[in-house]
């Protein structure tokens, strides 16, 4: 059985992260894209229907799954309408712009009996998979410190909704969810968060820098993003009782990571860390299998809600300049 998929939104996210992988995944068919970028859609996916109004795909009984890749403030409304129309739903991160909205969507998804999940695709990237394996197999030992970067060299502020003030805008809400979700997967919920946010670029309208410290009993986690930093610099720094890991270069591509990290052992010697490999279809393969009932849901709603709670706590911490207990 092939599931018919409609993607709403055809910006970079919709085009590269959703429509592309959906079209390449066995058992899924990209049936429609909701966007006014009809020429782009025709070029990338000849024969796929382009429609302007999401109501058209909600009303289409042939559509099984809707992927939402629109500005963050529209996530709640589009998710709610898709669920009401009996569709399965994938929504890009952040889930919504408030944790209350996220919890409300969970209620509606459970009532509808449909799958609703959030696109925390960073779980499937090579650098994270290698890291996760090194923690799971004991290579790193007990972790004392974990630092995760999503830095970008983007000195000019583009005219984009993400860069303007408002709910769910700025890098804390854009890139923060990826880093938070990974950490919650690895270490669970922290005791507290201290988050600093700033607008560092001239003319910036929304947060373009964050530094969040997540406090656990002994472990410390730092999540940070700076738009005036080179992208090939630090990605992960991990200090464990058996080894430290330093990994450079964020890698969002398929295949084997060309820049594996370096392990430093307690005696000071170093060796190359194992490299991970990625396939950008993995998230949608997992979604397909969950809808078909052959595998569990990839990103559970409670996990996605936990990310929302950390995002909100980070905003509160930054506004009040204090640690917020979770």
């Amino acid at each position: 059985m092939t599931l018919q998929v409609a993607v709403i939104g055809y910006g970079d996210g919709g085009r590269v992260l959703h429509a592309g992988p959906v079209a390449r995944t066995d058992g899924l068919k990209l049936a429609a894209v909701v966007s006014t970028r009809t020429a782009d859609i025709a070029r990338d996916h000849p024969g796929v229907r382009a429609v302007a109004d999401p109501a058209a795909v909600f009303a289409d009984p042939a559509i099984d799954l809707i992927a939402i890749s629109t500005p963050n403030t529209s996530h709640f409304d589009l998710c709610a309408r898709a669920l009401a129309a009996g569709k399965h739903v994938v929504v890009d991160k952040p889930f919504t712009v408030t944790a209350a909205e996220a919890r409300e969507l969970k209620r509606r998804a459970e009532a509808s009996g449909r799958l609703l999940t959030v696109f925390h695709n960073f779980r499937y990237f090579a650098d994270y998979k290698a890291l996760q394996a090194m923690i799971a197999d004991g290579t790193l030992g007990e972790i004392a410190y974990f630092e995760s970067h999503f830095d970008r060299w983007a000195p000019k502020v583009p005219d984009a909704w993400r860069e303007k003030p408002g709910a769910g805008s700025g890098t804390w809400w854009d890139l923060g969810p990826h880093l938070i979700d990974q950490v919650l997967q690895l270490f669970g919920k922290p005791l507290a968060i201290t988050c600093d946010q700033a607008i560092q670029r001239p003319g910036g309208g929304a947060t373009d820098f964050f530094h969040a410290l997540l406090r656990y009993a002994k472990l410390r986690v730092v999540l940070t993003s700076c738009f005036l930093a080179p992208e090939q610099e630090l990605r992960f720094v991990v200090h464990g009782s058996k080894a430290s890991l330093t990994k450079y270069g964020i890698n969002l591509r398929d295949g084997v990571d060309p820049l594996p990290g370096t392990l430093t052992l307690p005696d000071g010697t170093t060796r190359e860390a194992p490299a991970g490999a990625a396939d950008s279809r993995d998230f949608y393969i997992a979604v397909r299998d969950a809808i078909l009932g052959t595998a569990p849901q990839p990103v559970k709603l409670d996990e996605a809600i936990a990310v929302m709670d950390v995002l909100e706590a980070g905003d509160k911490s930054a506004a009040e300049r204090r640690e917020v207990v979770l």
Binding site: Y145, A229, P230, E233, L234, H239, S244, T246, T264, G268
Partner: peptide, 19 residues
Amino acid sequence: GDSLAPTDRRFIVHGSGAS
């Protein structure tokens, strides 16, 4: 400063002109 971290990075500076 971290007694559980090997000596590695000393300065990381990001500026509009260079890091």
